[in-house]
Amino acid sequence: MTESAEFREAFVAFRAMPYPDYPALEELRDWNSVLLDLDGHIAGYATQVYDGRLEAARVPETDALVRKLGSLRRDLEEIRPRQDEDAALLDEYRRYTAALDRLVRALAS
């Protein structure tokens, strides 16, 4: 089965994004560790779908992944920067999680 054009575009856009730098802000480091786990989980399945080794419909619990990522994105908005570098990194994480959100939603549809 050929996956949707939206999924393929979301995957290519996501893969083109570098993972944001490791944060100095402790609260953001804790948040980052959760993102790393979720990112690896989603990216692993998405890569298999993109390569044609797995149908998107067979990816388990995509709705739960959408919810987890939504919760993670809301948690990111609660983190307050202490320095300009923190604020810039928060913006990078927002862009990265938006691309990951687009990918997982395309995977789920």
Rank of each mutant, 00 (worst) to 15 (best):
L90N: 03
L65T: 00
L90Y: 04
D91Y: 04
L28T: 05
S33M: 14
L38G: 07
R58W: 08
L36Y: 15
E77P: 02
L36F: 15
W31F: 06
L36M: 14
A64R: 11
D30E: 13
D84S: 11
L38Q: 08
R82Q: 11
E92D: 15
T47V: 02
T47G: 15
W31I: 02
Y50G: 03
Q48H: 08
D30V: 12
L69P: 06
A88H: 10
A87T: 01
L89R: 09
H41Q: 15
E92Q: 14
N32F: 02
A46Q: 12
A64V: 14
L69Q: 07
V49M: 05
R82V: 01
V59D: 00
A64L: 10
A56G: 15
P60V: 04
I79L: 03
L69H: 12
L89N: 04
H41W: 08
V49C: 06
L89G: 00
T62D: 02
R74K: 05
N32D: 14
D86V: 01
D30M: 13
V49Q: 07
E78K: 13
S71M: 07
G40M: 10
A64N: 05
P60A: 00
L90D: 00
D63C: 03
E55R: 15
V49D: 05
S33N: 11
Y50W: 12
S71V: 09
L76Q: 11
L36I: 15
L76E: 13
R58V: 08
T62E: 00
Q48N: 13
Y45C: 03
L35E: 01
V66L: 08
L35F: 04
A88I: 09
T47N: 13
L35S: 11
G40L: 08
R29N: 03
I79Q: 00
L72Q: 09
R80S: 10
L38P: 03
D91G: 03
E78Y: 09
G52W: 07
R82N: 03
H41C: 09
E27I: 00
I79G: 01
V34K: 10
E26Q: 10
D51P: 03
R53C: 01
D30H: 12
V49T: 08
R29C: 03
E85A: 15
D51N: 14
